[in-house]
């Protein structure tokens, strides 16, 4: 574990994201977003968050690509080529500044995998030790998501359900 494997994966991610922004064609941008989701899912898998990786692969790569394609299919644009104006001066100033600020803030965070950081001193061990006795769920992530934070998850599901109903109401065809 001397050489961190996430660095080549992150390089691939960066290249794919830049390509998805810079490419001239709508179809190709959709495909590149699918590729991006594949790589992101690989990164999650490497960090050990297997269920997040699974959701990323299903939703990002599979469902996202198919939905984008269905949108292209339904709207049937005459010309799928993109025309981009060059970025304005304000964008060029503000976004590097924002990135610099974020990096500066991130330098204050504890080291990744640091055993003496506050998160791994008392929060994680508590969950790891007591979640099985409290909830009888073998997976800790599932225990946190479904038992300790169950109200949060329930309301999230309600929001997504409402969004789905709204989409169906907007998109349904009138039967004569």
């Amino acid at each position: 574990m001397i050489f961190p494997f996430e660095i080549p994966l992150l390089l691939l991610l960066l290249v794919t994201a830049a390509g998805a922004i810079l490419v001239k064609d709508l179809m190709s941008a959709v495909l590149l977003l699918g590729t991006y989701s594949f790589f992101l899912s690989l990164v999650w898998g490497w960090f050990g968050a297997v269920d997040v990786a699974f959701v990323e692969a299903v939703v990002g790569a599979g469902l996202g690509t198919v939905l984008f394609l269905l949108t292209l299919f339904g709207t049937a644009p005459k010309d799928t080529r993109l025309h981009r104006p060059p970025p304005s001066l304000l964008t060029l100033i503000v976004f590097p500044l924002l990135g610099f600020l974020l990096l500066y803030a991130a330098s204050d965070l504890p080291e990744f995998r640091d055993p003496s950081s506050p998160a791994s001193v008392h929060i994680s061990p508590t969950y790891l030790e007591q979640s099985y006795q409290d909830t009888h769920t073998p997976n800790v992530v599932t225990a946190v998501l479904m038992d300790y934070r169950s109200l949060d998850t329930m309301v999230e599901t309600v929001v997504i359900f409402a969004a789905g109903i709204a989409c169906i109401l907007l998109l349904r065809r009138q039967v004569k």
């Binding site: 699974f54 692969a57 690509t65």
Partner: peptide, 16 residues
């Protein structure tokens, strides 16, 4: 995950 990947890849590629 890799099983799921294989199936999802099929769906995506067939859609395209």
């Amino acid at each position: 995950i890799s099983t799921g990947y294989a199936l999802i890849n099929l769906v995506g590629a067939l859609a395209v």
